[in-house]
Structures are given as structure tokens and as C-alpha cells.
Design a protein around this nucleic acid. Structure first.
Lengths: 84, 84
DNA sequence: TACATATTTAGATATTTGTCTAAATACCTA
DNA sequence: TAGGTATTTAGACAAATATCTAAATATGTA
């Protein structure tokens, strides 16, 4: 839960998730969408991976990232519990 | 949205919200529930207020804090949008 | 093998954050 | 008004964070 909230507490990372909503992307493609260096994006992807918000698969020299929204159910549940 | 995710990105603040779920509390009562000084709790309450996750009302020398879950709908909606 | 491309790792740095102590403010009551 | 209680504000500091550049690793191709 901690890693999840931490991962979501950054505008760039939230935008990465939005990009991946549309289609799977390589690290390089993701990096091109931002005005940030590749190492920095790589770091963001690592934090998103730790929170299991993204999964990755190696394909030759590329690493393809995919969105995983299932962990967001935990937050949904947390909010629902707080609300009732 | 930024302030909201930021406010939620702290274990102590999330626990404060859980306490307020049960009943309204004064700043002092909230502080007593944690092993943290009152100024630190006051700071957390300020961050929660900025995110509108809590409201406060002055009652004599006391300030009574209440939970406001309506802003959590924004996060719910953000998650739902990401999921479909 | 040698070189190019894709990505991460390592290390540095400036900013943000959570915490503390001490002081200030606001209200209550004798 | 004086003293006590509740809370916040101010200022300091250590730890965490986002970013960068340079180097390392892994893969593809001539």
C-alpha cells in the first residue's frame, strides 16, 4: 500500500500510466514522451514496477512495459472502506 | 489531484483519516494517538486540509477536525478511467 | 569481432519532506 | 489581568526524492 501511494505521488509517473493505458510501450518510447532524460524515466519505471503498476518483458534489446491496473483495486477498497 | 496524492502518501496521515472516520476529533486528541509531537501532527493536518481531506472548525480553544471523503471521488474516477 | 542501439546502474546534487524544539497566538477562567 | 491549556508558526536538520551526467550491460548487425 505504501509503495502504491508512493508510486502514484508523481505527475510524470501518473502520465506514464496514462500512456500505457493506450498501448504497451518500450522504455525508449516512454522516455520520448517526456522532457526528461532516459535514466530518470528508467527510475520512474522502476518505482512503478515495485508497486506492480507496470510489468515488463524483454524483447531483444527492448523492454516492453505494460500497465497493470489490478493493484489499484486495493486503493479502491481502501477508499470505499474509508467512505462507509 | 497533486495535493490529494501527496496527502495520501504518508502512513501517519492515512491513519489520521481512519481515526476521523470513527468520530470528529480535536487536534490534541489526534496527536495523542501517535508517537509524534503535536507540531508534527499539526503539520500533517495542514497537508490534509490543503487536500480538503479534512475540514476544521474552531470551538473555543479547541479545533475540531472532521473527515471529508468527497474529494476521494476524484481518485476513484481517475482509477476507473485508467482501468477501462 | 567490432560497432551501434536500448536500457539500466552508479554517483552527484538540489529540492522536498517529516520530524523536532522553542516561541507565538488564541482562548478560557479565576 | 494573570496564568493555564490548545494549537499553530518558525526555524533547524536529517532523510528521501527527482533529476542529471557518465559509465556499464545487453542485444543486434555488419
Amino acid at each position: 500500500m505504501n509503495k502504491l501511494f508512493k508510486a502514484l505521488n508523481d505527475q510524470t509517473r501518473r502520465e506514464i500510466l496514462n500512456l500505457l493505458k493506450e498501448k504497451d510501450m518500450t522504455a525508449g518510447e516512454i522516455a520520448e514522451a517526456f522532457n526528461i532524460t532516459k535514466p530518470s524515466i528508467s527510475h520512474h519505471l522502476d518505482i512503478l514496477s515495485q508497486a506492480e503498476l507496470v510489468t515488463s518483458e524483454k524483447k531483444g534489446q527492448f523492454i516492453i512495459y505494460s500497465l497493470n491496473t489490478t493493484v489499484l483495486d486495493d486503493i479502491m477498497q481502501w477508499i470505499i472502506t474509508l467512505k462507509d
